[in-house]
Every structure is written in C-alpha cells, then in structure tokens.
Design a protein around this nucleic acid. Sequence first.
DNA 1: CGAAACATCCGCCACT
DNA 2: GTAGTGGCGGATGTTT
Length: 319
Amino acid sequence: VAAVVFDDIPVFELGVVCEVFGTDRSADGLPAYDFAVCAAERPPLRTSSGFRIDTPFGLERLAAADLIAIPGWRGVDQRPPDALLDALRMAVDRGACVMSICSGTFVLAEAGLLDGRRATTHWRLVKTLAERYPAIHVEPDVLYVDEGTILTSAGTSAGIDLCLHIVRRERGTAVANALARRMVVPPQREGGQRQFVETPVVDVTPGHGIADVLAWAQGRLDQKLSVNQLAARAHMSPRTFARRFLSATGSTPHRWLLAQRLGLGQKLLETTDLGIEKLAEQVGFGTAAAFRLQFSRQFRTTPTAYRRAFRPSRESSCS
DNA sequence: CGAAACATCCGCCACT
DNA sequence: GTAGTGGCGGATGTTT
C-alpha cells in the first residue's frame, strides 16, 4: 500500500490511510500491510497544519504497490505533477487499485482514470468535479464509490469508511469489523443500494422513533418483514414512516432491510457452513434464488464464491 | 431465464 | 404563510 504525499497535504486524510494500512496490528491477528508514504514532490513537505513530513520514498515506489491512496489534494485548481499522473495510469494498467479521499478524487480525474466511471468527492466539490470532468458519472450523495480497481470517497471521515470497505473486500467482514473495533469506529455505515456500496451520508440519530424499529427489525431478519409492518411498529402511516425513515437513515425502508439481510448473509457465509437454501431462509429470503439474485447484484459475486474466498481465512491480494 | 403476481417508493395533492 | 401528515396512482423493483 502506498500513500501519496505532496506539499500542503491534509493531515487527517493522510492519517486515516496510515491508521488503517500503516499500523501493524498483526499481534491481534489483523493483517499487516507493507506500507509506504511516498512523496510526489521533493521532501520535506509541508502539511496543511504547518508541520513537516519527510519520507525516504518517492513515486518510483508506486510501481510495486497493489493499492495507491491519494489522501486529498491541495487545491482543485492546482494541476498534479505529471509524474504522479503517469504513475497512477501505469498502476491502473497493471491492475493495481487506486483510491482517493476528498479532493484526492481530482487527481484521479486529472489522470483520466475516472472517465466513464462513477466517482465521488467532498460534497462541496461535487459540482466542480462534474462541471470540469463531464465524462465522470459523479455520485453526489454517497460516502464512497467502489468501481472495482478505482475507489473514491467523500470528505474526510468518509475515507475511514472507504478504507474499511477495502479491508472488508479483501479480507472479509470479520477482519474489517475487528479492525473497526480496534479503531473505535462504527463497523460500517448503513445504506447500500446498487453495485458495491453507496452509503448515504446521513446517519441514524437515536431517540428518533425510527431507531427503535431499526433495532427491532435487525433482531428478526429471519422473518418476513414488510414496510407496512415496520410502519405499524413505529406507530406511523406507511407514507410518513417512509419519509421519516429516509431523512433519518438516508435509505428507504426496503433498501435498508435488504442491506441488513445481505450483510447478515455475508457474515453467515463467512462463519458457518449452512447450505445456501438454509442460509437464505435464515436471512429472510423466501427462496435461495431471491437471495442469490440480490447478493450477486450487490457484491458482484455469488454467495458460494464469496464463501470460498472468505470462509477459510487466507491471503488474497488487491483484486 | 422470462412472465406473472406482488411490494415498494415518490410526486402530487388535499388536509390539519 | 409554513410545516408536517397521509392517501393515491403508477413507474419501478422484487419475488416466485
């Protein structure tokens, strides 16, 4: 894993990447990554907070990376160094993964890596991104976008969600959750619609009538739950419930429920040997076919393939 | 896989 | 005038 640094680097975003990939927690059974902070410009570099960063590594190191992180960028009007853009393009051609946090997305955009793809950035910048790079399908309202080898995230702390998502993708939910626990952050923020994950920015605030129903529903994912039932449980009309749910959660009731079911399904695939039929039933799908359909739509793999990848804990590289 | 049955969701609007 | 509620219809999505 290589984190790219430059003059005026935002400290927090770099910190996120260092925290997730640059901290050795192998004593706790968590993966340790070969991690390097690589300077895109001649060090020492100034941080956005005034202190300086020095590192022995430069861009040549990107040639060996499986994952390259761009933790922000110093200004959307500043053109990134050509050497960096070239290195990124080469990495992607090689099949390496590239991720960005916040304004770092502009670096990937400038390298042309996002053309024809979905991407996101800090909400204050989405308009600029869309205007400047019309070939990018900008997702304004999500925490992060997973386009396979190219991943972009929204502002600041959304970078944590993206990093955890990557760990989850490569090592499974159990590892990602353990890591989240070590970092004392929530395992994954709720949501998830199509493709891999599109997580809404709004989170649940407890005390809201909605929160209780959420917990209630989570406890009985094995049962058939209709939106009307949930609404009744919340003592609201279906229409009002749907509205309140959306504003509290950023997701619609059914979409949320589906995400919960699939999440539980992932866990069971990783930790049990239940047959798909039985497992589908356990997570509230009437038939295994329905489960398979939703699962593969969401995760781009079949349940069985997912289990094969994550059930026996083993190494895997950035896909 | 497709078709038929069924559920969700979102704009619109009338109402408090 | 503003703010929230809830019913309705039909496009869209889900399950069987």
